[in-house]
Design a protein around this nucleic acid. Structure first.
Lengths: 162, 162
DNA sequence: CGATGATAGTTCACAGGTAAATCATCATGG
DNA sequence: CCATGATGATTTACCTGTGAACTATCATCG
């Protein structure tokens, strides 16, 4: 009887007409995401960056090249105004640099500084370690199956290729 | 080749020393949670409530009784200051009522109004439907297996019983 | 019984996110 | 080529979330 089963039992009393079985997946996914987030946030706080800021830094790091501000908004899904503010702070912190785009002077090219790159290289592997630890009670085959099933769900939710 | 595989391929180029395989689960879970969230947020916006506010309303609804403000903070995981502000807004919107606790006048008893209850009964089933739709490409056995595997992960992350 | 420490909630001050308005630059069609 | 609309990013104004300080009430112990 885990947390989600307890919640479902409560709903069964209040709204017996509703079949809450999809929550066995949906609510668990939401809760796992939240708990993983909470674990990582300690690491982030220790380096004085937020999750949202790390998202910007990792987008730059894995692209391996400077990005236009607009590319960052599409990769992170955050609106342009948010990105502008985050870049302000990241720039002040010395983690990224901004430069006007050569060919299109409306645009901005954002690049990781050496410190920014070092920070990602420290924090990203640590995040992966949290994820690995969460899978400790599953066999290799189970992990693979879990990944596969999640991929099916994800494809349904996010049909577009990019 | 889904989104996560593409991201992992990028990391393999930049940080070949890091084994990113846990992201097949971790990153997918995070992304599915975010996409489900985005779907529901349209329904919420149409009724002019935020996700955080719905969390308060659902906590009250499934408890089936008025709750102390403190109970809401533990059930939602949000700090007290946030709950106070949310209750202010929910009260102004006529969705909850606040009353001083009889036996302990420091405390506050929060109760759903009829409108608040009706709103939950409209929005919660709709959220479940989004979750059900996300599972459309899985067989019954696969859904059960997915739920089971997620429960194992969740138990590892969230060991305490409550 | 008071005094004193604990507890419940709110207030305060400030960070971050966002839609809408704005500014600067670009592209194009007359 | 220049006027006009499109585009990229920033600024503005507002709102929500949160740690810390604060207020009111309770509980306990001398």
């Amino acid at each position: 009887m885990d947390y989600i089963e307890r919640v479902r039992a409560q709903w069964a009393e209040r709204l017996p007409a509703v079949d809450t079985s999809p929550a066995d997946v949906g609510a668990r996914v939401r809760r796992i995401a939240a708990l993983l987030e909470a674990e990582v946030s300690d690491d982030l706080a220790a380096r004085d960056v937020t999750r949202a800021e790390l998202d910007v830094l990792t987008a730059l790091r894995r692209s391996g090249r400077p990005l236009r501000a607009g590319e960052i908004t599409t990769m992170t899904g955050s609106p342009g105004a948010s990105i502008t503010k985050r870049l302000d702070r990241l720039e002040r912190a010395g983690l990224v640099g901004r430069a006007v785009h050569e060919r299109d002077k409306r645009g901005v090219l954002v690049a990781l500084t050496a410190e920014g790159e070092a920070l990602v290289d420290e924090l990203f592997p640590r995040q992966i370690e949290h994820e690995r630890a969460a899978l400790a009670d599953l066999s290799g085959a189970e992990r693979a199956e879990l990944g596969r099933l999640l991929a099916v769900v994800l494809r349904r939710l996010d049909p577009k290729d990019y």
